[in-house]
Structure formats: C-alpha cells, structure tokens
Design a protein around this nucleic acid. Structure first.
Length: 260
DNA sequence: ATGTCGTAACGTTTACGA
C-alpha cells in the first residue's frame, strides 16, 4: 500500500498540479495539508472520479487537512483531542484495511510557530504536547499506525541546506526538536531516515530568493510509523521533481510503501 | 531587491500567514 503526504498550499491554486501528481504517483492513500478551504468548497468530484474516497477537515482561508483513499475510510475522526477551544483544522485520522492488516492513518498540519518566542510558538509547543498524548493512546491500541504530514520541524542539522539560517526559527529551536524527539521516542520510526541517510534530502523550498534553484531546502514533511507499521515498511521516497513543475506548492509529496 | 505565494476583503491594493 502506497501512502503519501503532501502539503498542497491551497486546493484552488493546486487544482491542476494535484490531480496530475495523483495520476502519476497513484498513491492508495494521500493525506493533504493546507487545503485552505471549507469542507463544502473542496472539489471532491475531481478525486472521486479517480476512485478516491474523500474526507476533509477544512477551515476558511487557512489550514485544513484531508484524506484521499482508494480503500474505504472507517472511523474517521476530525481534530486533535485535548483542547475543545482550538478551532484550527490541523488533524484528521481514519482506519484503512490493508490486504492483511488494518492501519490507522493520521494526517496532520503541525503549527508553524513563528514568530518565536511568542503566543504562536506557545501554541505550537502546546499542540505538540496534545499530539504526544494522542500518540500514546494510539500506540496502546497496538494496531499499525502512521502519523504523516507537515510537522514544521527540522529534526536535525542535516535536514537543512543552511542550518545556521534556522537557528532561531520555530522549526529548528531546541524546544521544538525536543518535542518531536519525545514523540519519536514513544517508539515511532521516521520512515524516510529508516530508508535513506543521505544529507540534503528536502521536502520544502521557500518561494523566495530562488531557494529551489539553489536547493536551499528543509525536510519538514514526515511519516512516522508505529512499531507494528514499521515492520511492514519497504520503501520511502520524496517526489522532489514536483517542485520544478508549473505552479508548484512550496512542499513536495513524500510517500511510503507498506507491505501490509 | 525586506526578494514569493495563496487567500480574503467593499479590492485595480492591502493584510496576513507562511
């Protein structure tokens, strides 16, 4: 089963690029971030006519996540538990049946957190603490689980072309990386690093200052696998070339192949 | 070049978020 994550930076702006990528990459499941659309305005037809079931958790103008799946989506849940007052649409999960085992797939858009310090950074760290607690719950269920999306976290210096430029950024601050490691240390595997140790492997390049042309990127889109899911990992790749196409998102898709 | 996008709003331009 091929499962991808892709921060599309607006469904309206990606109305051609996203279906083009789906037709080529043919993921069984794709979690999308920054759909920047309310549920009713999301163009489900484009995906349904390609055989995808569509579940969205949208919001006006900003944020918004979705799951596309060629297999039925069961037990769909919207929103990250732990703060009833949080109105930002950044979390969606569903259960999907593989050929032999089920897998719970969580799609997430972790807060950016800049400027740092400040209330947005406080929100990021609080959100990560809530995610930690949800991850604990999911692990206790002992079914294969994946948490995939735009983490807005640069895990290590080798995950940035110019780590010094990110020294004071919310994506690379020690507290942010520690919160990410705390989740990993529950027992999750960073699928990409399990399959690839090369430096300069990026999933995001800023639109500004010719970042793409200089490969001045960062790796912030991650697929974390529970132990039961990691046992089935056979491949993980970044679709880098998508960034060089017509009207691209500033992120590219990252995907895993699971023999599950 | 304080550099680019995407979205929304009383909009031929500005503000915000990234």
């Amino acid at each position: 089963m091929k499962i991808a994550t892709f921060n599309i930076n607006g469904i309206k702006a990606r109305i051609n690029a996203l279906p083009d990528w789906l037709d080529e990459a043919q993921p069984d499941v794709a979690v999308l971030q920054e759909i920047k659309s309310v549920d009713d305005a999301f163009p489900r037809d484009i995906f349904e006519e390609r055989g995808y079931n569509v579940e969205t958790h949208g919001q006006k103008s900003f944020n918004g996540v979705a799951i596309l799946s060629k297999r039925p989506l069961e037990d769909v849940r919207r929103g990250l538990p732990g703060d009833a007052a949080d109105e930002q649409a950044r979390w969606i999960e569903a259960l999907v049946m593989g050929d032999q085992h089920p897998i719970r797939i969580c799609g997430l858009y972790l807060p950016n957190g800049n400027p740092c310090p400040g209330p947005k950074y406080d929100y990021k760290l609080a959100w990560m603490e809530r995610m930690y607690r949800r991850a604990e719950e999911l692990l206790a269920e002992e079914i294969p689980t994946m948490m995939a999306g735009d983490y807005n976290i640069i895990p290590q210096p080798e995950d940035a072309k110019r780590p010094e430029a990110w020294k004071d950024d919310a994506l690379f601050r020690p507290e942010s990386r520690a919160a990410f490691r705390k989740i990993l240390n529950l027992g999750f595997t960073d699928a990409f690093r399990a399959r690839n140790q090369l430096p300069e492997q990026f999933s995001f390049w800023d639109y500004q200052a010719g970042a793409w042309n200089r490969n001045d990127g960062i790796r912030i889109d991650h697929l974390l696998l529970s132990p039961q899911a990691a046992d089935h990992l056979t491949d993980c790749k970044i679709d880098v070339d998508i960034r060089g196409r017509e009207k691209p998102s500033d992120h590219v898709p990252v995907w895993v192949e699971l023999d599950i």
